[in-house]
Write a protein that binds this DNA or RNA. Sequence first.
DNA 1: GATGAATGAGACTTCATTCAT
DNA 2: AATGAATGAAGTCTCATTCAT
Lengths: 212, 212, 212, 212
Amino acid sequence: MVTAHEQKRTERADLRDALVAAADRLMRERGARGLTTREIAREAGCSDGALYVHFQDKAHLLAAVCERWIPDLAAAVGSLIERVGVATVQENLEAIAAVALRTYGEMVSSTFAIGGDPELLTYHQAALKAAERGPRRGIESIAAYLAAEQRLGRVRTDADAVMAANLVLGSCWQRAAMRYYFGEDILPIDDATYASGLAAAVTRGLEPGGRA
Amino acid sequence: MVTAHEQKRTERADLRDALVAAADRLMRERGARGLTTREIAREAGCSDGALYVHFQDKAHLLAAVCERWIPDLAAAVGSLIERVGVATVQENLEAIAAVALRTYGEMVSSTFAIGGDPELLTYHQAALKAAERGPRRGIESIAAYLAAEQRLGRVRTDADAVMAANLVLGSCWQRAAMRYYFGEDILPIDDATYASGLAAAVTRGLEPGGRA
Amino acid sequence: MVTAHEQKRTERADLRDALVAAADRLMRERGARGLTTREIAREAGCSDGALYVHFQDKAHLLAAVCERWIPDLAAAVGSLIERVGVATVQENLEAIAAVALRTYGEMVSSTFAIGGDPELLTYHQAALKAAERGPRRGIESIAAYLAAEQRLGRVRTDADAVMAANLVLGSCWQRAAMRYYFGEDILPIDDATYASGLAAAVTRGLEPGGRA
Amino acid sequence: MVTAHEQKRTERADLRDALVAAADRLMRERGARGLTTREIAREAGCSDGALYVHFQDKAHLLAAVCERWIPDLAAAVGSLIERVGVATVQENLEAIAAVALRTYGEMVSSTFAIGGDPELLTYHQAALKAAERGPRRGIESIAAYLAAEQRLGRVRTDADAVMAANLVLGSCWQRAAMRYYFGEDILPIDDATYASGLAAAVTRGLEPGGRA
DNA sequence: GATGAATGAGACTTCATTCAT
DNA sequence: AATGAATGAAGTCTCATTCAT
C-alpha cells in the first residue's frame, strides 16, 4: 500500500530532475536574467530550501541545465552520416540543414541566456570540455560524410570538406540566432526553402563554367 | 586658455556619452549580468544619481549602449561594394570575410549580453527597427555586389547571390559567436586562413567537374 | 522546558504582529512621514527583509496598522449604553465625553499620519468600509441612548438625538485633533472640566426660560 | 519698451509668490507626502535651484504655504459679530456654521498634510504662535457674540458661551475633517441642513421643559 | 529529505540641495 | 536672480542562502 506520504516521497525522489527541468523551462521562456531560485522552486513544486539539498548553489543548478542539452547537439547531425552514396549530396546537405535549423531553434534562447552571463558561461564551457562535446563534433561528422563522398567522386577533390560543413552548420546556427536576436528572419523565407537554397549554394559555388 | 574647471565642465557636458562608453566597456568585459549602476557611474567618473539625469533608468542606458554600434554594423561591409570587376570575386569575398570577422568579434559579447536579457533584447530590437538597420543591410550589400559580378559574367548565372552573401556573413558571425561561447575556435586556424578558406568554399562549391 | 531557541521561534512566529506593533508605535511617536522600513524592522527586532515575508510592501504594513485600531473606535462608546434611566443624562454624556477624549487622544496622531498621506488614506478608507466601522457607529450608539432617554421623558421630545450625539463626539474629536495640531489646548482647562462643560452645554442649550 | 527679457524678469520678480502658490496647489491636490521640490518648481514654472533663492529650504517654503491661509481662518467668523440683537440667535449660529463648513472644507486637506508631517507641524505651530492666530480667535469671537446676546436676554444667563462657541466650530471642523478622512459624510445630509440642525441642537439643548 | 521564515548585503532609484555659469 | 547638471545619502525592495524543525 502506498500512502499519500510515501507517494509524495517517491515523487520528490527525482526532485533534482524536476528542478533541472523547471530551470530549463523558465530559462527558455524568459532567459537567465531575473530567474530566481524561488521561481524555479515554485515551478518545480518544492520549497526554496530544497534546491540546496540537491545543488551546492544556484550556479550548479544552472550548470546542470546546460549539460542537459549537450547530447541533443551531436545527435542532431550524427545520425545522418550513413547516407554516403545515397540520393544526391545536395539533398543530403539539405536534410542536414533542415535538422540543424530545428535543433538550433530549440537551443538558441538558452545559448543566449548562458552566453549573456559570464559566470554561467564559464561553468558551461567547463562542462562542455569535460564532456568532450561541442560543435566540432557536428562539423566533423558532416566533414567525414563529405570526405567519403569525395572518395566516391561525388564531391570535387579540391573541396575543403571541413569548411563546407562549417558553412552549412554555421549558416543554420546564425539563422536561428538572428531569428531570436532580431525577432524576425533576415531572409524571409520558410526554413525548408532556406535549407534547400543553402544546400544548393554550398554545392554549386559561384564560379561560372560549372555543370549548372 | 582652458582651466581645470572648464575642462571638467567640458567633460561633464558629455557625461551622457561617458556613461554610455563606460557601460559599453563594462558590458564587453563582464557581460550585462551583474552590471550595476554604481559600477557604471564609477567607471564614468560620476555619482550614482547622475545616471538618472541623462537616462530614465538603467535599461534606457543599456539601450543606448546597444544603439551605439549599430552604425559599425552596416559600415563594415558597405564600403566594399566598389570592387565590382576588380581583382577576383574570391579575393573580394575573402576581404569581406576578414572585415566581418573583425567587426563581429568586437560586437559579440555585447550581442550575448543583450540577447541574454529578454528585457534588453526587446529594447534593442525596437531600436534596430527604428533605425532601419540590422544584418539584412550587410547581406544585401554583398548580394548586390555579387549580382553585379554576375552581370559581368564573373559569377555563374544560376547562383543565389543572397544565399551566398548569407553564407559568408553567417559563417563569420558564427565563428565570432562560437569563439566567445566556447572560449576557443571550432576550426583552430587563424582568421586570415579562415577567411581565405571560407571564400574558396563559397566560390568553388562542392560539385565535381568545375574549373578547379 | 523552553530553550532560548524555542523562545526565539515563538517570538518570530508572530513577527507579523511585532511588525505591526512596531510600526504603530513609531507612527504614534513620529508620524508616518519619514518612517522607514529599516526603522520598523529594527523596532520589531528583525531584519530588513523580514518585512517582505509578511507584507507585500510598506503600504500593506501601514494598512495593517490602520486596521489595528478600528475596534478601539467603536468599543469606546459602545459600552456606555446600558445607562438608560440611570443617573442624569448630563452625567452620562459627561462620562461619554471623558472616554471619548481619552480614546481620541490616543488615535489622533495616527489619524493625521494617515490623513496626511493620500495613498495611506485610500487604504484606510477601504479597510474601514470593509470592516463596516467608522465613526457613525459611535454616534449611532449615543443617539440610540438619547432616544431611549427621550422615551423615558428625560430628554425633550423635539431634540435631535443624532445631532446631539454628533456635537458630543465631534467636540471631543476636535479637541484631541487641535491639541495635537496646535500643540496646546484651545480651551485651556483640564479634560474632566471640558467633559463636564460640554455635557452641560449640550444638555441645557442656549434658550432662556429653560428650567435652569 | 519692454523686451522679452525684461518681461521675463518682471514675471520672475514674484517668483516667491508663484512658488508658494504652486506648493499650496499641489499640497491641496496630493498632500504633502511625496511632494518634491522639482514638482513645485515645475508647477511654478522655474528651475530647481530658484527655490533656494527665495527660501532657505523646502521646509521654509512649506511653512510659507501654511501661513498663507491663516488670515482666512479668522476672517471667516470675525465678520459675523455685528449681528447682536439681529434676527434670532439660532439663525445667526446657523449662518456661522454655514460659513465655517465652507472655510474648513477648503483648509482641511492642508491641515492633514501639515499634521501628518511632524517636522512641518512644528514649523506651522511656531508660525501660528508668532502670528497670534489660531482657532481660539474664532471661538472667542463667537463667544463674545453670545455673551452680548446674553446681556440682551436672548441667551440664558447660565449658558457657557465659550463652550457653546466651541460646540459650533468644533462640530463644523470635525465634519470637514471626517468628510476628508472617511471620504463620505458621517451624517449624510447637505451642509445647509447640517448647519441648521447644529444651530438648533446647540440652542435648544436636551432638557425637557424648554420652550420648545 | 524537505520546509519556509528569516537573513542581510546590495540593487535600483529618488530627491533636497549645491554651484559654476 | 535664475539655471539645471550634478551630488550622494537614504529609501524601498530583491534574492541567494541558511537553519531549526
